[in-house]
Structures are given as C-alpha cells and as structure tokens.
Amino acid sequence: MYLYKFGKMIFHKYANPTRFLKLASTIQPWAAAATIGFLLAGLYFALLSSPGDYQQGETVRIMYIHVPAAWMAMFCYTAMAAAAAVGLIWKHPVAELAARATAPIGACFTFLALFTGSLWGKPMWGTWWVWDARLTSVLILFFLYLGYMALSNAFDDPARGSKASSILALVGFVNVPIIKFSVDWWNTLHQPASVIKMDGPAIHASMLIPLILMAFAFKAFYIWVMLMRIRGEINEGKIRALRLRQVHGGPPSRTTILEKTTEGAR
C-alpha cells in the first residue's frame, strides 16, 4: 500500500502527456545523436579495427550485431512488462503507451537476433537452423511479442487494447523463465549433434569494445524510436478525440463546454 502511494507520487509527475511531450522532445535529439555516434564507432571497431576469430574467422563479426540484438530482445520485453505493470497499477497513461511503443521495437530486435544467428549458423554449424535451447527460447519470445502486438491492435477502443495487452505482457513475463527452463531441459534431452559450444576462452578486449559500443548504440536507438512512437500515439489520440467530438459533440457551443470540462478535470 505504501509502495502504491509512493509510486503514485513519482509517476504522477509524468502522467500528464503535455509535460511528457516537452521532456521527450528534449531527450529525442540527444538519443538520435548517441545512436549515430555509437553506431559509427561500433561499426568501425566491429568491421575494420578488430581481428577475425582464430576459430570462427570473419563470421565472428556477425556477433557484434547478433549479441547486442539478443540482449535488446530480453531488455525490451522486461521494459515492456515493467511499463505494463506501471500502467495497470498506477493507471499511468504514458506508461501504457510506452509498453505499446516498445513491443514492435523489441520484436524487430528479436527478429534481428534470430536472423543474424541463422546467418552465423550456416557457415559455423552448416545449417540455417538448429533446435538449440537458446535459439528456441528466442523464437518463442518472438511469438510472445507477436501475440502482444496482435492483441493490442485487436480492439476498436485502443484503451481496451492497451489494458488487455498489458495483462498479457505480465502473464508472458512470469512465463518467460518457465519457458526458458523447460526449453533448456528439453534441449539437454535432445542435444543436437553439431552444436559448437559458444563459450570459449574469455573475450579479448578488441572484441569487447565493439560489442559494448554496439550495445550502447542499440539502447540509444531504442530510446529514440520509443519516444518517437509514443509521440505518434499521443497525436493519434488527439485525432481520435477530435473525431469523437464530431460524433458526440453536436452543435459547436457544446464542444466548447466539453473542452472546458476536460481542461478543468485534468
């Protein structure tokens, strides 16, 4: 109960979309600049300045995209579930929008991780796909994202869609460790023969630098695109409100009354 009130105090400040929009437009250019800067630096180290792996050769460079993308796949789902929880418990409108905005970005990172993993797997394992525990879990995660996105767009009333999908995000979040555990279990029973263990000796610094830089680039990219998407959603909401006034407003005088009551209420 105290936690609830404490959260209400903190989140209340940014519950107002106008204040949020102001904050967002300040952060957004910085996030964009950080994305481009980290990406250029990361790609320079990843593609030009780092050595090939003694075992994997040049294909190791795929890892500089693949590993940060896989991190982001997990990170975005956690962020989405957290935002969904804040939206459900504290009825925070911007948190609901943040959860909705995160899902497609997370799904893209998950897809990128799967796709690059497959590209790496062909030369290394000799096949595009193996039912490796990690790959399988990420594939299921991808479907969890798809389910969330499908549900949040399945209703005529977008408020209903965000509430239903928030519940789904939380249910999914509770399930992710169970799914991970069960897939690991299943995988040890049916160990594919051709898997080469990824964990070799500790990563050398020349490989660690591009990895970290790319991870920062992806994170900044996430913040940039998420803010953009939330702003888009807020504007869409404004358009919907105008449409609803057309339907329910009646004569113009009444619309002004409505405007006033809304302003007064906030």
């Binding site: 299921i140 479907f143 389910g147 549900l151 249910v171 399930n175 169970i178 799914i179 069960s182």
Partner: peptide, 10 residues
Amino acid sequence: SLLVLPLYIP
C-alpha cells in the same frame, strides 16, 4: 491461439 500456444510449451 497466438496468445496461448507459446504459454502451453512448458
């Protein structure tokens, strides 16, 4: 089915 099947896997 899209919502439920992934949760059925365990």
